[in-house]
């Protein structure tokens, strides 16, 4: 049994301590805003936040979340609406397939939290470990900058 906060609510997951956080969040807790891309910490598709810091949930044991606060993509929404950052991604139409986008947005949110006025170079550097195969990079950069204007 594992207790933690998920997007502001207390949750309990019936999963062993060494279960993979990604699968606990997607399969047990029905979260859609994180994806399995590699399972190797190489792509960032599975990024979520624990206590405000981005982690790769594919290589994080569920026990790391115990007693902490986990945020997934849907947890960024404000009153059921897209957050400013999410809306900027929608306004820029910053997706092709969109599979990488949840990790991109989580990572971008963490960047904005520590640096509310990032430069383009800051955005590129912060997102460098997140891979996109469709080539949506330039729009993603624009979306992050738009959200911080």
């Amino acid at each position: 049994m594992l207790n933690f906060q998920l997007n502001g609510h207390d949750v309990t997951a019936d999963a062993p301590d060494d279960a993979t956080l990604l699968w606990v969040l997607t399969d047990d807790l029905k979260q859609h805003g994180l994806k399995f891309g590699c399972g190797l910490s190489q792509c960032g598709a599975c990024d979520v936040m624990i206590d405000g810091e981005v982690v790769r949930s594919c290589q994080t044991k569920a026990s790391s979340a115990g007693g902490r606060s986990v945020t997934t993509l849907s947890g960024l929404m404000e009153n059921g609406k897209a957050s400013k950052l999410q809306q900027a991604f929608i306004d820029e139409q910053a997706a092709q397939c969109g599979y990488c986008l949840s990790g991109m947005i989580m990572t971008a949110q963490a960047l904005i939290d520590r640096n509310p006025k990032p430069t383009e170079a800051d955005v590129r550097a912060a997102l460098n470990g997140n891979l996109c195969r469709c080539g949506t990079h330039t729009r993603i950069i624009r979306a992050v900058l738009r959200a911080t204007e």
Binding site: H32, L73, S74, A82, F89, Q93, A95, G98, L101
Partner: peptide
């Protein structure tokens, strides 16, 4: 298809 993809909806 974009809004759901940006807010954690079921898309894939």
């Amino acid at each position: 298809d974009i809004p759901a993809k940006m807010t954690g909806g079921e898309s894939f």
